[in-house]
Design a protein around this nucleic acid. Sequence first.
DNA 1: CGTTGAGTTGATGGAACTCAAATAGCGTGG
DNA 2: CCACGCTATTTGAGTTCCATCAACTCAACG
Lengths: 235, 235
Amino acid sequence: MHEPERAGCKWCGLGRICFPGRFAAAPEAPRKAMHIRRMRVPRGKTLYRSGGQVESLFMIRSGLIKELAESAGGNGAVVGFALPGEILSIQGLCSPVSQTTSIAVEQSHVCVVPWSMARDLCAESPQVAAEFMRLVAAAGIAARDLLMLIRDREAIGRVSGFLLNMQQRLSVHGAGERELRLGMNRDDIANYLGLSSETVSRCFTTLARRELIQVRAKRLRILRPHELRRVFIGG
Amino acid sequence: MHEPERAGCKWCGLGRICFPGRFAAAPEAPRKAMHIRRMRVPRGKTLYRSGGQVESLFMIRSGLIKELAESAGGNGAVVGFALPGEILSIQGLCSPVSQTTSIAVEQSHVCVVPWSMARDLCAESPQVAAEFMRLVAAAGIAARDLLMLIRDREAIGRVSGFLLNMQQRLSVHGAGERELRLGMNRDDIANYLGLSSETVSRCFTTLARRELIQVRAKRLRILRPHELRRVFIGG
DNA sequence: CGTTGAGTTGATGGAACTCAAATAGCGTGG
DNA sequence: CCACGCTATTTGAGTTCCATCAACTCAACG
């Protein structure tokens, strides 16, 4: 087993909200003062469910959590993956009932911030409110990014874009530059990209044959990011 | 020519923000006090451009405006249509630079609300701020709805969903129940749904042959909404 | 060694895109 | 009002891409 990457308060997307104005200074004290709880989420466990109350905001410290929307075909549709340092259930700030379900793909650790607290902070400080607004908007932008990723783009372009996106997001917090570990299986990737798992597999092997990447199970190395980007854009 | 439907202050999505707490009461006075400008947008004119500054929030009074995102294929990708009573450029509240371009599909009339004013209102009243937050979240939800509309769904399902969605949105403000006028052309619909215009056309004729709808150019009538919904869901 | 589950590879059919041609709308000016 | 031309839309034929089904490999595990 391999120790999964962790993200502390330094990397947390909530940073500026937790410590408005004094980001990354004395990180331990304020967290305690705000009664932020930490929590372990075993692989396969549901963090919150579509249609249920969302009582909290979640920040991923380690692991990988997938977000599912209700879809036509009974089974949920993967609409996003939350990586360490990223935030989940932001849209809950607007409607009390969750529109999505989130499930831990692998064992994960999260910080739990009750909505009541977030709301109080928003009411007190316009700065914090603006910061939250930005987070909500970012969630919307992520949705549109996924839309742009899969629309008008054939399978190999979607897969290339997915890999580049994962690489970029993982490298933000110091994970290996080109060596990346995909926590999710082929089915989840396929579902996310609107493809079948066989097609995802075929795209991986095609890219590997062209020597743009190397794949072995969940371990993946990007050999030529530049060329991969060309495939993504549509060469 | 046909007089396009109009939307007054009563129908405006900004209603609760413009007159917090006294919605629909004395609609004229407050609008004047807030220096809200009205504006005519000729067909084909750009309201704001991707990469440019967005200085204002726009509310559609009449007409039809399409919103485009930068796409791989040079030409923009249609990510949404704004109908009378709906709001445009909300995401601008978070980032000063627009991520989308919006163009009038037909001659339109809009109300223009400067961002500075919106921001001031947010700072003054937590209620207004929450209302804005909801609008921002709604924009994100719209993006995910479009995603769910086109993913894992074949052409005829997408077209059916599009028609049902348009019918629902148009009927909110009193437009004809089942008789609707599509302001946009087939290319725009196709682009929006991630299809080719020929495929959209074929779907229309298929639905017409099955007698679920009637089409003649941009005029469209939904004959059997229930059956159409079945096609949408995936019968 | 057999079992199990994930991943890969191969073969086939169907859906949608592309190119191309025919037709319908629609505004313009005679 | 009608003829004209332009554009939008429809229809047709051929091709491509991907989902599906099925067989196979591979590694982990008891």
